[in-house]
Amino acid sequence: MRNGLLLLALPLMIACASLPRLEPYGSEEGNDCGRKCFAPFLCGRWRLVHSINGTLPGGLRATMIGVTVADSETGRLRCSLMSIEGLVLLDAEYDGKLTIHRGIGPLGSPGMVLGMLRDIRLMLFRPKGGAVAAGVLENGRNACRYTTPEGTVDVVITGDGGFEVRSYDSCSRLSRTLRLAGVNREGIPAAIELDARGMFGYSLQLDLIEASPVR
């Protein structure tokens, strides 16, 4: 019986979805929207310190401190995750290839760390390539759509000075939603919320402690 249900559910699980409709602008409005869509992303090389509150699969909640050095030009990232007491659980670097300098427990797994770095890139860096479309979503919000190697990313201007970044996989299924609030002139949000969907879904809330440019 269970196998039968699973077989019935299988097509639903693997079926591709469709992206939300985006009504394109004329070229002038599109350019203006495109510029605004750049706003919530880093420009240059920065060191960021965040408090990170995570709700993990199974409902466990953990608060950590994250330090990231990110370079928007090269895409290079170095990140460190530590407990509030200062115990470093992860120190990893990505510069085309992953180097884990220190990884305790599950954070020693390259697969898990690469997943984390993907989330960090989504939070900090403008999606690769230019916007393929800019327009209005069905809910009336302005948005830019990017095609990335992993799928599609929509950057939505939420109207309250905030942004929403929606990442869809290659099958147009929503995999990540980011809410960015209090974005300053350097493209650094004061608060970030991430919801990761899927079988092992989780959510993260990041609050900026300090940001400093790296010379």
């Binding site: 993990l56 909640r61 953990a62 608060t63 407990s83 659980l89 427990g105 809330q205």
Partner: peptide
């Protein structure tokens, strides 16, 4: 037990259960 304050909210945290934290 660990509690973390975020704004007005108080969140019960599970990280104190981590083996490495217990040592400290």
């Amino acid at each position: 037990t660990r509690y973390v304050k975020r704004g007005d909210a108080v969140i019960k945290d599970s990280s104190a259960r981590l083996q490495s934290m217990r040592v400290v």
